[in-house]
Design a protein around this nucleic acid. Structure first.
Lengths: 194, 194
DNA sequence: CCGGGAAGTCAACGTGCATTGACTTCTCAT
DNA sequence: ATGAGAAGTCAATGCACGTTGACTTCCCGG
């Protein structure tokens, strides 16, 4: 309330006029804000501000809020993330990741974004196809085998569940609880690929 | 997006002046709309309309939007659902339930509501306490044992994940895929209580 | 039958935000 | 060097929605 204007943090480099860079900056800010706040609470003015740009440019470069969202959504997918999974260690890695705080890694933010989009009735339709093709399909290929489709669903569902749990979780896991959590989670994910 | 408009089926009975009934109607409408639309997109005017009441009454009876939401949230919990779980069969029951379509049962709607609340940064804080007390705690007691807290998290996370997956799922599961899905899911939940 | 209080209605008000178009400044090709 | 067009700025508009307070209608006890 009584906080004085933080007196211009003066942008280090005023940045040369560069449409491409500005567009990219806006997109990056959009991904961050949509991920953190969700579609409804994210504000274009703030996104523009974070990008060091003006709101009007959002219109110029993207058309509008929904278009910006769609674009950010598309850019948030990394269809190859599954490839990084090593069969021997992925279960433990996931368990550790899930035991951490949401802010701990960048990956989490992307998923948070997707998750919010997925559970919002407005944006869900946009997402279903994308999820199918860019999330489930890679996992399916990675799993391989006859019953990959069904097993993929189980694995994906579980994975998502942990993302949500971490998202909701109030206080961080520590000590014995954390240890047990990791052990159990690791075992479970391992059993899912067996 | 705005194509729904359940258009008021004209109240058959103009309803006698009954604060209790009105309050209940509003609460019911709130649960429905919040569940379908999420917190941000749900509109008090529409909730009131669906309840056959006036917006101002929401203020009178609940105080405001957030308070109404909190109340609806509380009412959406069925703290005793865990008690119904039979250790021998619950895993299979859950698997079958998760294999079904979201609209299949009323339970799904409640969870949809909770899920939306959980994934919205605005409402998530409100939810933490409720989740702790009415969802995690019962499961913890049900699980029992030394490491119940950590194991509860794992079980709850998984459970939530399947709810999300079902929510997102485009087409229903059938045939072999469904069978495998149920088998795998059953096995997994069983292992979680072991 | 009547008066008071509760239940219900109405019509603003204010705010926050997306959207938009006109205006200014920069940059680069000629 | 200069002017045309792109990049960036500003302020206004309008809408959707929560909130609010004053007003009206009903019910019920005496």
């Amino acid at each position: 309330m009584s906080d004085i204007a933080p007196l211009a943090p003066e942008r280090a480099a005023p940045r040369k006029r560069d449409a491409e860079a500005t567009r990219a900056a806006i997109l990056a800010a959009a991904k961050a804000q949509f991920g953190r706040l969700g579609y409804d609470r994210a504000v274009l003015r703030d996104i523009a501000a974070e990008a060091g740009a003006d709101v009007a440019l959002i219109k110029r470069y993207f058309g509008g809020k929904e278009a910006l969202f769609t674009e950010a959504l598309r850019a948030s997918f990394r269809p190859d993330f599954v490839q990084e999974w090593d069969r021997a260690t992925f279960a433990h890695e996931i368990a550790v990741m899930m035991a951490g705080a949401p802010a701990d890694d960048a990956r989490a933010h992307r998923f948070q974004f997707l998750l919010r989009a997925a559970t919002s009735p407005t944006t869900a339709p946009l997402l279903n196809v994308a999820i199918q093709e860019r999330f489930l399909a890679p996992i399916r290929d990675w799993l391989g085998g006859e019953d990959a489709p069904a097993r993929t669903r189980v694995l994906a569902a579980t994975f998502i569940g942990f993302l949500v749990e971490r998202l909701i979780r109030a206080e961080p896991l520590t000590g014995r609880e954390r240890a047990i959590f990791i052990a159990r989670t690791t075992a479970m994910f391992e059993s899912l690929v067996a």
